[in-house]
């Protein structure tokens, strides 16, 4: 039995729909000319570095096939790194090198492969195999994240990242998506990944849903989802809030991963973040957006990102 809500009930619950997101949140806050800042990860990296925001360090970039000759010598000092397309989508085309065995490179699984395979992968990236629309691309080489073990046992495959929605510099909502066997290792909620809403004040799990139904344990690993608490939450929200000044995007998704030593690192930014975060949180985004707008019209809004994050913790989290 398919159940429909009345539009009034959804409005009361403060849900933001797709049309409102497109017309009010994205079209009015994200000027088109800023999109390349986030769609091209190489530019994102530069912008983040200019503003001193934590992100995995860029080792180098391969722009031309000719540069492949110098690549082995260039990679010599780096034992662990990741190669990815600058304009890739959906996590495609990412090659992780977790170590060395003499001349050979090692995958995280321990399987060794030679430079020729690495070179072919870079070549595929350059020729646009993984980029949207098949445009020629650039291969980025960045340091591998030493993942914080906080999510161990919470994911079927891969390491989850944390998505923070930042509205005009205020972190308004956050979640993490855990892949499952049902989602085929993908982090898409509608395919069966578990969405965990995170309290914007504390980083603690608020609730978890799979296929729109509340769950308390991970369906594959059995780990207790209610016990998730993201460490270094203050730094994480401050970092997210700072991205506003760096990019100018008024409605943005900030994807953060946790490094064991360095703490939260910005993985990428998104100019069109989806609405699933509301389902994971079990509440609508609208009261929070309205609260930010109301604060901005008073003219007494905090101007520093850290103060905005602090204000959000105090005033937005309860909404």
């Amino acid at each position: 039995m398919i159940r429909f809500a009345s539009p009034f009930a959804l409005r009361r619950a403060g849900i933001v729909g797709m049309n409102r997101r497109n017309v009010e949140l994205i079209a009015q806050n994200n000027p088109r000319h800023l999109y390349p800042l986030v769609d091209n990860k190489l530019i994102t990296k530069r912008v983040l570095a200019e503003h001193g925001l934590d992100a995995p360090t860029l080792i180098g970039a391969v722009r031309l096939t000719g540069q492949l000759r110098d690549l082995p010598a260039f990679l010599e000092p780096h034992k662990r790194f990741v190669i990815k397309p600058a304009q890739g989508s959906g996590g495609k085309g990412i090659l992780v090198v977790a170590g060395r065995d003499g001349e050979a490179y090692l995958r995280p699984s321990g399987v060794a492969f030679g430079f020729d395979e690495l070179a072919r992968h870079v070549n595929n990236i350059l020729s646009g195999l993984f980029s949207l629309g098949g445009k020629n691309d650039v291969a980025m080489i960045e340091e591998m994240i030493d993942f914080d073990p906080v999510f161990e046992g919470y994911s079927f495959e891969g390491v989850p990242d944390i998505r923070v929605i930042v509205y005009k510099g205020f972190p308004v909502m956050a979640m993490t998506r855990l892949s499952t066997a049902a989602s085929d290792g993908k982090a898409n909620l509608h395919q069966g990944a578990v969405g965990v809403g995170l309290d914007i004040a504390t980083g603690r799990a608020l609730r978890a849903v799979q296929f729109d139904k509340p769950v308390t344990t991970h369906p594959d690993t059995g780990a207790d989802l209610t016990r998730i608490t993201v460490p270094g939450w203050d730094r994480l929200t401050q970092l997210s809030a700072r991205c506003f000044a760096a990019t100018g995007l008024g409605y943005m998704g900030v994807d953060v991963v946790l490094d064991r030593q360095k703490g939260p690192q910005i993985l990428e930014l998104n100019a069109r973040p989806g609405l699933a975060v509301q389902i994971a949180n079990g509440r609508g985004m609208r009261p929070r957006i309205d609260a930010v707008e109301a604060l901005l019209t008073t003219g007494s809004a905090p101007s520093s990102p850290d103060d905005r994050a602090a204000w959000a913790k105090e005033h937005i989290a309860p909404l």
Binding site: R3, F4, A5, L10, R11, I15, G17, I279, G282
Partner: peptide
């Protein structure tokens, strides 16, 4: 809201 969203966000 779109009609499909009345279904999607119904639990909320």
């Amino acid at each position: 809201f779109r009609l499909s969203e009345l279904r999607r966000f119904e639990p909320l």
